[in-house]
Simulated scan of single mutants.
Amino acid sequence: MSTSQRKIEHLKFCANRPVESKKATSGFDDVILVHRALPEMSIDDIDLSTDFLGKRLNAPFMIASITGGHPDTIAINSALAEAVEETGIGIGVGSQRAAIEDPEQEYSFSVVREKAPNAFVYGNIGAAQIKEYGIQGIEKMVEMIDADAFAIHLNFLQEAIQPEGDIDASGVLDAISEICSLNIPIIVKETGSGISHEDALLLKKAGVSSIDVGGVGGTSWAGVEVYRADDRKETSAKNMGELFWDFGIPTASSIVECNVSLPVIATGGIRTGLDVAKSISLGASVASSALPFVEPAFNGPEEVTRKLTSIIDELKVAMFLAGCRDIEQLKRSPMVITGWTEQYLKQRGFDLSDFALRANIV
């Protein structure tokens, strides 16, 4: 099967089937922002803007990598990009592998920069492909969308379930280190299983500019592959996907795991502005989400803008109730971590009192 055909299958399954985590959650229900009953400000005084990898965003949020690589995805990426340009946030494109294999698919990606000339836009390719394409291939993908940054995604769980998957993960860290020599910020992102503290330290040593945790709690790509396998009567792949549907580190915990003095993107089950606020208070620089924008994108840019505006408004209310005038104060806002997330992080050796006792008062 061609990469292009696989991409459109993925998009359709995400739009029409339940693909989110089943039993596992993102962990944000275990995170409680400390309420400030006396915020002593107007909600209109709150400044949501932030700098991320050299670009100013109107709010600390991005539409995570969704699609591209098939003619039917052009309208989707166009709608997403128009909404991002309107709201002044960021966006990532789906894996550009299809456009490298078939140059006719390039416009399904470059349309994003065409429709969002001022937005923060990042490119994307899988870690399994960077050894094949090398620096020249990455440079071509960067040029394709005039990217502000480039993401290398880690999806070895998905690759292990796909019958056509690339399961050779040897040499990936060295390849990432080589890509980091390019004059563009390099993001390394997981796609639904999270990143541990150990791997975050390795990525920092390799020279990456930012880590996207891509934790458990949102779209399960093992789950997506279950539907593909079921359609093709591939019982072994289906059973494997069912077993590993929720495998990995939930997003809230992975944010803490990735606190290695690099900008962190919180992705995985981000569904509300309150989730965004909790992510940033946990240590993320920005948050991102993909699945909530798939269905709106089928209906046009207005629907995507409406969804984005709702999340941004929710973030502002969360900051108001936490007494935070800007994103820097939100990063210092006290919080309490409870439940399964507390147990996990304590067993991993993290001191959670640092979160509960800090103060955002200046």
Rank of each mutant, 00 (worst) to 15 (best):
A149N: 07
E114L: 14
G90C: 05
I89R: 05
A175I: 10
L173E: 03
D174K: 12
K140N: 14
I179K: 12
A98N: 10
G123M: 08
I145K: 02
V142E: 03
L173D: 02
G92P: 03
K131S: 15
V142I: 14
P117N: 11
S95M: 08
E132V: 13
G90L: 06
G137N: 01
I161E: 03
K140R: 13
H153V: 10
A151C: 10
I167T: 15
A147F: 08
A151V: 07
S108G: 01
T87W: 12
E106T: 10
I161W: 01
G123D: 01
E143S: 15
S95W: 00
M141D: 06
I135A: 13
A169H: 14
P163T: 10
K115M: 08
R113W: 03
A149V: 08
E143R: 15
D166M: 06
E143D: 14
Q105P: 13
I138H: 07
A151E: 02
R97L: 07
E106R: 15
F156S: 01
S110K: 12
P163Q: 01
E132H: 13
I176A: 00
S177C: 09
D146A: 14
A151T: 04
A160N: 08
I152K: 06
I89T: 11
Q129L: 08
T87K: 14
P103W: 05
E104T: 15
Q136R: 15
Q158C: 00
A147T: 13
E132M: 14
I145M: 04
Q105C: 13
T87A: 15
P117K: 12
K131A: 14
I100G: 11
Y122V: 07
E101P: 05
I145H: 04
C180M: 05
K131P: 09
A99E: 00
P117T: 08
G92Y: 03
D148A: 04
I130N: 03
I125P: 00
Y107E: 12
I91T: 00
G165S: 04
G137W: 04
F150W: 00
K115G: 04
H153F: 04
A151P: 02
V112C: 03
I135L: 13
L154Y: 04
A160V: 02
E114S: 13
H153P: 05
I152G: 02
G134V: 06
G134C: 00
I125G: 08
P103K: 04
G171Q: 05
F150A: 09
C180D: 06
F109W: 10
A160F: 01
H153M: 11
I100T: 15
A160H: 01
G165R: 06
P163R: 11
F109S: 05
